[in-house]
């Protein structure tokens, strides 16, 4: 590795170029990391404890890949400019240098990065999200998906087939999700985590809303079907309100008085509305 700068001898011979690339890399990485911060602040904050875990994973990975992307892009661009055949250079480049050391370094770093992201933010994030499964006294909300609407029942409160999803802030909700016809996916973008609604199966999703929000204030706070489910898929939405616990009690009491009429408007048990899409 002691060949003179720019001389023959391959990779080791371009010592000066290595330093220039390293300087560019350091500069672009620092700049990238500085820019990531304000960019991420533009992203609306998650409205659930579990959603924050998901956001943290995305943000961490974004910061982690800045130097990776910077390195590869700088190497590509630098090579395109510096190692281009100039006018009059007709022959081939100097013979390939052996680069075993670089290759093993590449393997080591990429393996270490990969294994590290499996643990953080992967496994640790999942464990953090799954903690909510053991929350004390969760509020059960039965979510029934059906072409092309959502119905929410609160068995503990005697509320059936509500068309708006009302949630108390700060209490873990056990969403019990199923479908009456095809596969749908229960998703409130501002709560982040989604779960598919599958006919014949029941899935649990534990989320803890931790910010007051509603569909009127923020279109990302809406139930949106995320799995293609037919021609009404795009509009398979429902309004959502995350309210203070006291307001939730008031809402529940109000709903409780109208349980009977809510039940009357309930869905037929056979999916009569699941009409085939006819040509």
């Amino acid at each position: 590795m002691s060949a003179p700068a720019g001389g023959a001898g391959g990779g080791g011979g371009h010592r000066r170029d290595l330093w220039i690339v390293a300087a560019w890399w350091a500069g672009v990485t620092v700049l990238g990391e500085i820019l990531v911060g304000p960019l991420l602040r533009l992203y609306p904050e998650a409205a659930s404890r579990e959603g924050v875990v998901s956001d943290d994973a995305i943000f961490y990975l974004l910061r982690l890949v800045v130097p990776v992307v910077a390195l590869v892009v700088i190497l590509l661009v630098y090579s395109m400019v510096r190692f281009r055949a100039r006018a009059g250079e007709v022959g081939d480049a100097p013979a390939q240098a052996r680069g075993g050391r670089w290759a093993f370094a590449w393997l080591g770093v990429s393996a270490a990065l990969t294994v590290s992201v499996i643990f953080y933010p992967g496994v640790t994030g999942l464990l953090e999200i799954w903690k909510s499964k053991t929350a004390v006294n969760p509020l059960t909300v039965e979510v029934v998906a059906q072409q092309w609407e959502w119905r929410f029942s609160y068995p503990e409160l005697g509320i059936e087939n509500a068309e708006t999803l009302v949630l108390p802030k700060g209490r873990t909700v056990d969403f019990v999700i199923t479908s009456r016809d095809v596969i749908h996916s229960f998703w409130v973008p501002s709560l982040r985590i989604k779960k598919d609604a599958i006919p014949g199966e029941t899935r649990h999703l534990f989320l803890t809303p931790d910010r007051l929000t509603s569909t009127e204030e923020d279109p990302m706070t809406r139930v949106q079907c995320a799995e293609l489910c037919g021609i009404g898929h795009a509009r398979m939405r429902a309004d959502v309100r995350v309210v203070a616990p006291a307001d939730f009690e008031a809402w529940a009491a109000e709903q409780g008085g109208t349980t009977a009429s809510a039940a009357e408007g309930s869905l037929p048990s056979t999916p009569a509305r699941a009409q085939a899409v006819t040509p």
Binding site: G10, G11, D17, L76, S79, A85
Partner: peptide, 15 residues
Amino acid sequence: YLVVVGTLWGARMRL
């Protein structure tokens, strides 16, 4: 990617 950047380094590229 390793092979790509290793091959480009010190090349005499015809673009």
